[in-house]
Amino acid sequence: MIQLELFLSFFQIGLLSLGGGYAAMPLIQEQVTHAHPWLTAAEFSDLVTIAEMTPGPIGINAASFVGVRLAGVTGSLAASLGFILPGCLVVSVLAGVYRRWKDGPVLHSTLGILRHAVVALIASAGLGLLQTAATAAEGGFDLPRLLLAGGAFLLLRTRKPSPILVMAGCGAVYLLYGLAAGL
């Protein structure tokens, strides 16, 4: 049953994404493009773009986006429920545990190490997206889009503009370029 598969996949994503929205992204990528043939790399890239442009946590955005395509409304609900269930359960249990152990060395050390691993995974997912963006639809190398991504990155590092504005700007620039170049 596809609903059950969606639920289990997104339960796994929900359970293992420590550190908020971006931490979920590498896990989503693995589940929906590698472990299951649900999205292509380009579709995943579109999903991240759409999730960034809309409100709500990326995990729920991804769960609804993938779920509804595979199994309609029930798929969307099964995947979203799977994603939020572990967090809601853990946070309820943690409420009791937290006050006693929050400054303890075990929890502190585990979270500290995990933070490093998560940064590495996010960087790896970002490079994956860059590879997708720098590959032309026909399979060749897409220099204009690589330059666009490089420019956007420099702008983000130096001026701290809103990410949504940067993405919309990239879209607009490439649209104009594509229309002019007859792509």
């Binding site: 970002g126 702008l155 993405m167 370029y177």
Partner: peptide, 10 residues
Amino acid sequence: GMQAGVAAVI
């Protein structure tokens, strides 16, 4: 175009 932008954001 936005794909290039989102890669930069991440």
